[in-house]
């Protein structure tokens, strides 16, 4: 059932986002051609293409964000929820399918942005430079890079789930649901900050005490691993809260 939900979720969101991704790459290509044709100065054509490029880039990120919120709110908590919640599907699968698809599109939009920048700015020999540059990093850097990617993904999940949980909290209130969602967001976010601060203080004590028998590098890697674990725990809490509300406290108007 999860695979089927994912299929429809990708279909429902892709029809809005894919044209945006493609048009960004297209406009990047056009800008590149204009540059290549010797329009080095800011003549009208280049200026327009760069302006359009910037607008699409901004629009792409905004739309990815809007689609993430809209799909959860409209598809689950408004009229379409009448269909989604009468399907023989456990509520957690709805959350997972929406979360995964949102994360995929956010990652894809970042990749598309990077590719478009490369299209515009690529100069001969740039790759070789990049490769020589990163080649000197060594294996510890590779592990660090891995940790950074994992922490970015976990943080992304936490961010999306925080917004889902806020909307679920807003749903508990009879009136002013949007306002209640914002209030839910502020409360959840503040609570998370407080718990995070406590966790950091705790980590700091451990860090100082173990300073004698571990190298700085190991400690840094450990610190990032702990941060990842903490953010993963937060995500799990947001997920559990959202799931509880959708499974046990659902009240569609």
């Amino acid at each position: 059932m999860l695979a089927k939900l994912l299929k429809y979720e990708i279909r429902a969101t892709g029809r809005t986002l894919l044209p945006l991704f493609l048009s960004l790459l297209l406009v990047a290509g056009i800008s590149r051609l204009l540059f290549g044709a010797g329009h080095q100065k800011w003549d009208v054509a280049t200026a327009i293409s760069v302006a359009v490029y910037a607008a699409i880039m901004a629009g792409m990120f905004v739309m990815t964000f809007v689609v993430m919120i809209q799909r959860f709110y409209r598809n689950l908590l408004s009229d379409e929820g009448y269909l989604m919640f009468t399907l023989p599907v456990k509520p957690w699968k709805h959350i997972v399918s929406k979360l995964l698809v949102s994360m995929i599109w956010i990652v894809v939009s970042v990749v598309v942005a990077l590719v478009s920048i490369i299209i515009i700015a690529y100069r001969q020999g740039a790759w070789t430079k990049m490769v020589t540059f990163s080649g000197g990093w060594g294996s510890s850097a590779h592990f660090l890079a891995f940790e950074i990617i994992v922490s970015a993904l976990v943080s992304l999940a936490a961010g999306v789930l925080l917004i889902y949980a806020s909307m679920a909290i807003g749903h508990l209130v009879n009136r002013h649901k949007v306002l209640a969602s914002f209030a839910g967001f502020i409360v959840l976010n503040t609570l998370s900050q407080i718990v995070g601060q406590l966790f950091r203080s705790l980590l700091h004590i451990v860090h100082v005490n173990s300073g004698n028998f571990a190298s700085t590098q190991v400690l840094n890697e450990l610190a990032i691993a702990c941060a990842i674990a903490f953010i993963a725990l937060l995500s799990a809490a947001y997920f559990a809260l959202t799931n509880h509300i959708l499974a046990k406290r659902l009240n569609l108007e």
Binding site: N75, D79, E80, G81, Y82, L83, T86, P88, V89
Partner: peptide, 17 residues
């Protein structure tokens, strides 16, 4: 989930996108 398998529901509103 088991009761949802056996109920066919027509709501009073449009629930299709």
């Amino acid at each position: 989930i088991e009761t949802k398998k056996i109920i066919s529901y027509l709501p009073e509103r449009t629930y299709l996108n």
